[in-house]
């Protein structure tokens, strides 16, 4: 679904944010990009979205080399990728429903289609009763759920998340992760940059660790920290049941919404 080949990104001033990164992400995978601040996680996400020029290497998204994509086609690339960011990036002067509908309006969908689809996805994220609120009237966790709803409303094959839980408390973080997990189960490929140890450890998905722009570890069903074999015993994994207990009131009628 996404393939990075020798991706190198050097910013003006010589900072190397990515060095010869090669990654192959399959359709339907859930991949964590982990590493300290400045390790290059966000840069990779930005490069996949064509938000900045690449210095060297190639990135294929859904079989297309996006590094060779002409500028006028970039909007089409972004329509096939849902995005969730740490700062939510909601339009403050639009209501929750309008924010979500916006992603569909951009595609030129008729309003008769937009209305029910927005309702459905707000239902999915558990905000069906808050469609006419403004973002500032919501908690951080609720705002992030709006942004997840917006990212998913047009059912993109790929969802990129850059520190989606960075501004949230643990309970809300778990809520968002459950949402992303559910979206992933509909077949959506998810790449998530994070430095939240607990979440990575609990989810037990593929982990790609970065250090100063270099991939230092790529592990299926991994944990946040690497363990040197035989040195210490790995701490017990937190499974999804534990997450259920933290946030027991999650809506559970997502099956039909994601069908």
């Amino acid at each position: 679904m996404i393939r990075l080949q020798d991706v190198t990104k050097v910013y003006e001033g010589g900072t190397v944010a990515a060095r010869d990164v090669t990654l192959d992400i399959q359709k339907g995978e859930f991949v964590f990009l982990v590493g300290a601040s400045g390790s290059g996680k966000s840069t990779l996400i930005r490069l996949m979205l064509r938000q900045e020029p690449i210095t060297r290497g190639q990135i294929w998204v859904a079989g297309k080399d996006i590094t060779a994509l002409p500028n006028w086609k970039v909007p089409y690339l972004r329509r096939s990728i849902g995005t969730v960011f740490q700062d939510f990036k909601l339009l403050p002067n639009k209501t929750v429903a309008e924010n979500v509908a916006f992603a569909l309006e951009v595609l030129g969908r008729p309003r008769s289609v937009i209305g029910p689809q927005v309702e459905q996805v707000l239902d999915l994220v558990g905000l069906d009763d808050k469609g006419d609120r403004y973002p500032r009237q919501l908690s951080g966790g609720e705002q992030q759920r709006v942004s997840v709803a917006r990212a998913f409303v047009n059912r993109p094959p790929i969802l990129l998340a850059d520190e989606p839980t960075g501004n949230l408390d643990p309970a809300n973080s778990v809520g968002i992760m459950k949402l992303l997990d559910r979206i992933n189960r509909t077949g959506t490929t998810i790449v998530m940059a994070t430095h939240d140890h607990a979440i990575v450890d609990a989810m037990q998905r593929r982990v790609v660790a970065l250090e100063r722009g270099v991939v230092v570890r790529d592990q299926a069903s991994g944990r946040y920290d690497a363990f040197i074999a035989g040195d210490v015993e790995a701490p017990p994994a937190i499974d999804n049941d534990a997450m259920e207990e933290i946030v027991p009131d999650q809506p559970d009628d997502l099956g039909e919404a994601s069908a």
Partner: peptide, 15 residues
């Protein structure tokens, strides 16, 4: 910010 969000969700320049 609004413009950058519009670009993020795939709005074309003319849109």
């Amino acid at each position: 910010d609004e413009v950058s969000i519009m670009k993020l969700v795939g709005a074309s320049n003319w849109y």
